[in-house]
Nucleic acid binder design. Structure first.
Length: 226
DNA sequence: CCAGACGTTGTT
DNA sequence: GTCTGG
DNA sequence: CCAGACGTTGTT
DNA sequence: GTCTGG
């Protein structure tokens, strides 16, 4: 699945990779530990162009009574999202790309949770397939939110998990953003073997309060082994 | 009919 | 809002 | 996803 | 054990 990710590419790099309007250059702080409920950049169609927008990670359906439901909607199964009450309207009309430079998965041994970084072997950034939704609170507060679609893990990362985020190739962006449901669904499949490489990273990643480049520097040799 | 869920993952 | 379960 | 809270009353 | 917050 995908419950924590990174996005540190510059706005210029994102603009080139995602074909954004040249005037669309918001300042983005580099992020090394993005967690659910936080605001993240998404790429969506607006006025015929691909625009960077912001959305709270964890989709809040339009009928929700409060924001809390979003914490349960950080991922959507790509096999069923088009028919689920929480996601199907977004699947029909509000698909997006979620830019990333990698994501984290965890292994657990003797109750020690060890994070791994999965990053694009060819260099980033990459595009997760996403959905977004608009919600208005009883008090009139307006919130845009999003979710990341998941699929079976490709062979190269199955030793870490059996699900992974859907990663779209650039050639698929237009179809994902614009095509019909039936045309878009076949795009939701595991990334080709070799797309990602995995390496252990600092366990500080577990705590969302840490968010800096040192989190993904190569792990130091364990002193206890010397 | 009304009430309550609406989700994913992993583990048992 | 819409579906499921009782 | 993981970490941290999980509660009330009264007082500052 | 389960929920909430980030």
């Amino acid at each position: 699945m995908c419950g924590r990710y990174l996005l540190y590419s510059s706005t210029d790099v994102l603009a080139r990779a995602f074909g954004l309007d040249p005037t669309d250059r918001p300042n983005l702080a580099p992020r090394y530990n993005i967690a659910p409920t936080q605001d993240v950049p998404i790429v969506r169609l607006g006025e015929g162009r691909r625009r960077l927008d912001r959305a709270r990670w964890g989709l809040v359906p339009s009928w929700a009574k409060d924001l809390a439901i979003g914490t349960k909607m950080i991922n959507a199964r790509s096999e069923t999202a088009h028919e689920k009450p929480a996601f199907r309207q977004a699947f029909r009309a509000r698909r997006c790309l979620v830019p990333a430079d990698g994501f984290f998965e965890w292994t657990s041994e003797n109750k020690v949770k060890q994070p791994w970084l999965l990053e694009p072997a060819a260099g980033g950034p990459i595009a997760f397939a996403g959905l977004f939704e608009h919600w208005r609170s009883p008090e009139g507060e307006s919130v845009q939110s999003c979710t990341i679609l998941t699929t079976d893990a490709s062979a190269d990362i199955q030793h870490l998990h059996h699900r992974m985020p859907v990663i779209l190739a650039e050639a698929s962006f237009d179809r994902w953003l614009e095509a019909t449901v039936d045309e878009a669904r076949p795009l939701l499949c595991p990334a080709p073997v070799g797309t990602l490489r995995a390496r252990q990273v600092d366990r500080r990643v577990n705590a969302v309060k840490y968010d800096d480049p040192s989190l993904i520097e190569p792990a130091p040799v364990q002193a206890s082994l010397l």
